Computed example of a mutant assay.
Amino acid sequence: MVSITKIGLTGRHLLTLLDYTSTEVEQLLENALTLKEAQKKGECPQLLAGKSLGMIFENASTRTRVSFEVGMTQLGGHALFLSPRDLQIGRGEPIKDTANVLSRYVDGIMIRTNSHEKVEELAEYSSVPVINALTDAYHPCQALADLLTIKEQKKSFRGLKMVYVGDGNNVAHSLLAAGAKVGMDVVVATPEGYGVDETILARAKEAAKETGAHISVTTDPKAAVRDADVIYTDVWASMGYEAEQSTREAALAPYQVNEELAALAKDDFIFLHCLPAHRGEEVTAEVIDGKHSFIYDQAENRLHAQKAVLVALMANV
C-alpha cells in the first residue's frame, strides 16, 4: 500500500513555487520519492483513475510531454495532447473562453507557453488546477525535479550551495524560488545584461528569510562556483531567442561550465542541466558526460516530481 501525505493543495494551481509554502514544497518532494519507490517496485497507485489532464503545448517538448503523459497513465488517468492547431486559442479565441470550456471537460490543465501572463489568465478563469509546464518567467516542474535529484544525492538541502551559471532565464528564476523554499543557498552568475528579473529576485529573497537560505547574484562565475555543491547551467539561447544566438555566444562564452571552472567547486559537486544541452557551448562534454553529472537522473525525476504535483492538485486523497 502506497502512503501519500495529504498536502492540502487540492484544486490549487502551480504557477511558481513562490506561491507555495516551504512545507508544501518539502511534502511534494517526499511524495515524489514515495511514488518513485513504488514505481520501481512495479506498484502504480491509481490515484487519478477516471481523471483527465488537458495538456496545451505552444512550444515543442520532449521531457515535458512524455513525463506528464506517462505520469497520468501510471496514476490511472488520461492525458490529452493539445497543440495550437487543436485549439481555437490558436485562432484568437480569448483565454477566458478556453479556460471556462476546458474546465468543463478535464480535471486539470497543463500549459507550456512563452507568456507567463497567459498562464496567469488561464488560471484566473479556470475552475480546475492549472500547472505551469514552462513560461518565459518560470519553470516550476523542472525545479521540483532538480530539488528531488539534489535531495537524492545530498540527502539534505541545509548547508548546500547551488550555483547557476549562464543566462538569467526562467530556469534560473525557478531555481532561486526552489532554493529559497528549501533553505539552500543559491548563487546566480550571469553577464551584464543577462541577469535575472529583479522582481522575481526580490520575491525569492523575501521567501528565503523564512528558511535561512542565502540568495545572491554576481557577474563573476569563478567566485560563484567556488566551493559549490551543485553546478547548474542551461542553454544560452532559450526558445524565442534563437535569433540572438551569435550575440549570446559572445556574451556568455566566459560562463561556459568546463573542467577549469568546475575544479573550483567541492570535490563531490554534482552537475545538473535541464536539457536539451549544447555540448561545447554552455557546457563541455567532459563535464556533462563526466562522473559528477546527474542529468539523466534529473530528467527521470521530471516524471516522479510531476506525479506528486498531479496527485496533490487533482486526486481525492
Rank of each mutant, 00 (worst) to 15 (best):
Y138D: 13
Y138K: 13
H139V: 12
P140E: 11
P140V: 10
A143K: 05
D146M: 05
D146Y: 10
L148I: 12
K151H: 12
K151G: 08
K151R: 15
E152W: 11
Q153D: 14
Q153S: 14
K155R: 15
S156T: 15
S156P: 04
F157A: 12
F157M: 14
R158G: 13
R158W: 08
R158A: 15
K161A: 07
K161G: 05
K161R: 12
M162W: 04
Y164H: 13
Y164W: 07
G168E: 08
G168D: 06
N169F: 09
N170D: 10
A172G: 04
A172T: 04
S174H: 06
S174I: 05
L175K: 00
G179S: 01
G179L: 01
A180L: 05
V182Y: 05
G183A: 09
G183W: 05
D185C: 01
D185Q: 04
D185T: 02
V186D: 03
V186H: 03
V187L: 07
V187T: 15
V188R: 00
V188E: 02
A189L: 06
T190L: 01
P191W: 02
P191Q: 02
E192H: 06
E192W: 00
G193S: 05
G195M: 04
V196Y: 00
V196L: 02
V196M: 00
E198L: 00
I200P: 02
I200G: 02
L201S: 00
L201F: 06
A202G: 00
R203D: 03
K205M: 07
K205C: 00
E206K: 12
A207E: 09
K209L: 13
K209E: 12
K209Q: 14
T211N: 08
T211D: 08
A213W: 08
A213V: 03
I215T: 02
S216G: 00
V217H: 00
T218M: 03
T219V: 06
T219R: 13
T219D: 06
T219Y: 02
P221C: 04
A223H: 06
A224M: 01
R226Q: 13
A228D: 07
A228W: 05
D229I: 03
D229P: 11
D229L: 03
D229T: 09
V230W: 06
I231Y: 04
I231F: 10
Y232K: 02
T233R: 08
V235D: 11
S238I: 08
S238C: 11
G240H: 09
Y241C: 08
Y241D: 14
E242M: 06
A243M: 07
A243H: 13
E244W: 04
E244T: 04
E244H: 11
Q245M: 07
Q245C: 01
S246W: 09
S246T: 14
T247E: 15
R248M: 05
A250L: 13
L252N: 10
L252H: 14
A253D: 13
A253V: 03
Y255V: 06
V257G: 11
N258C: 08
N258I: 11
N258G: 15
E259A: 14
E260Q: 14
E260D: 15
A262F: 08
L264P: 07
D267T: 15
D267I: 03
D268G: 09
F269Q: 05
I270S: 10
I270A: 09
I270V: 14
I270P: 10
F271Y: 15
L272D: 10
